[in-house]
Amino acid sequence: MDNNKLGTKPHYQILDGLRGIAAVIVVFFHLAEPLAASRLDNVVNHGYLAVDFFFLLSGFVIGYAYDDRWDKMTIGSFLRRRIERLQPLIVLGMTLGAIGFYFTDSTIWPLIHTVPVWKLIVVMLIGYTLIPIPLSMDIRGWEEMHPLDDVAWSLFFEYIANILYALVLRKLSNKALACFVVLAGAVLLHFAVTNPNGDVTGGWTLNAHHMRVGITRTIFPFFAGLLLSRVARPVYIKNAFLWCSLLVAVVLFMPRIGGAEHLWMNGLFEAFCIIFVFPLIVYIGAGGVVRSQTEEKICKFLGNISYPLYMTHYVLVYFYVAWVSNHKGITLSEAWPTALLTFSGVIILAYASLKLYNEPVRAWLRKKLK
């Protein structure tokens, strides 16, 4: 099926903007993370929940964009459209990560310069496919399935959700889908409150535990977003973008709940946010409207830059983490100029990636994958 015949539906401008807000906070989270003494005292303590928010947004947008098109579309044409959307920046992130690999001198990665070039190239080429690498090929030593671009693990699970949608779950009635989502939510809640870490973090290592975490974190929000796209009726709330942005920020910046003594409390908080707060934010954002040209430009810019920002920022974060590790005991008040410089570089890199690479490559792929 010719992709162009499917047309393009209007974007939810506020949801585009919220995706950008969450992506920016992810960068803040990764800049603050190496300065924290433990997982209990990160300044952006719940920044990792942005991934769960992204999954929910993806499910909502997929449902909105494709649910009523399957009479004109094959599974192959759907997957081609997803590849055209997701794959170019995956390739760029892996390539930039490989280019910068040997330049991140640090005591936390002492073996980097012993990695032969051929092995680096193999890991990069496998990374292009998003196939997880085993621990025996983890060339950085962080037990990552994608050691050249850490965040790519979430795209691996994003593809799994897309494939499940295309093959099976799109065919479910709303009632059946609701039952599936409730069951997935119960699994997520159980995991969050019983996990020894007291949170839902994980998914980036190729082992049984992390695969379970990744699937658990993906299935509920993605298909809850799909269900929401089917059953939600827009409700107008004044200044929806502002209120939704504040809600996203409150959740992601929220300090650890319960401390080290009551880990289950933090897990319960995170499950509550994923199961109830994030769908509420998307529901309000989907019904809202931008109120000025300035707000429209902000939402458009944040939406356009969100995915490039997410997929390329860790390239510079690796350098920043190496710098922090080489300055033992450095505090936030001492590190903020370097963190700000890194953040500025991340934004510039993301915008350059969007304009100089992602947009032209996607336009080329759109023609080739007709």
Rank of each mutant, 00 (worst) to 15 (best):
V61Y: 05
L120T: 00
Y318F: 15
L247T: 06
K171G: 12
S58F: 05
L40E: 13
R362E: 10
C244S: 13
L86K: 00
P134I: 03
I237T: 11
L92H: 11
V27Q: 09
P34K: 08
Y165I: 14
A184P: 00
Q13V: 10
L148E: 02
T216V: 13
L246A: 10
G303K: 00
T104I: 11
P147Q: 01
A335S: 14
A161E: 12
R233D: 14
R81D: 07
A363M: 02
W142C: 02
N358P: 00
E84P: 01
K175C: 11
F180Y: 08
T194Q: 09
I133Y: 02
L356M: 06
G198P: 00
I284L: 10
D67G: 12
A178I: 10
V250N: 01
I219R: 00
L189K: 00
E261S: 14
P88Q: 05
V290N: 01
R69C: 01
I215Q: 07
V168W: 15
A339G: 12
L263R: 04
R80I: 02
D105V: 01
V251A: 15
D150L: 15
G329K: 04
D150K: 13
E334F: 10
L125P: 07
L49I: 10
F276N: 12
P196W: 10
M137C: 03
N3D: 06
A260P: 00
S77K: 02
L189Y: 15
L40D: 11
L354E: 06
I62D: 01
N4S: 04
F223W: 02
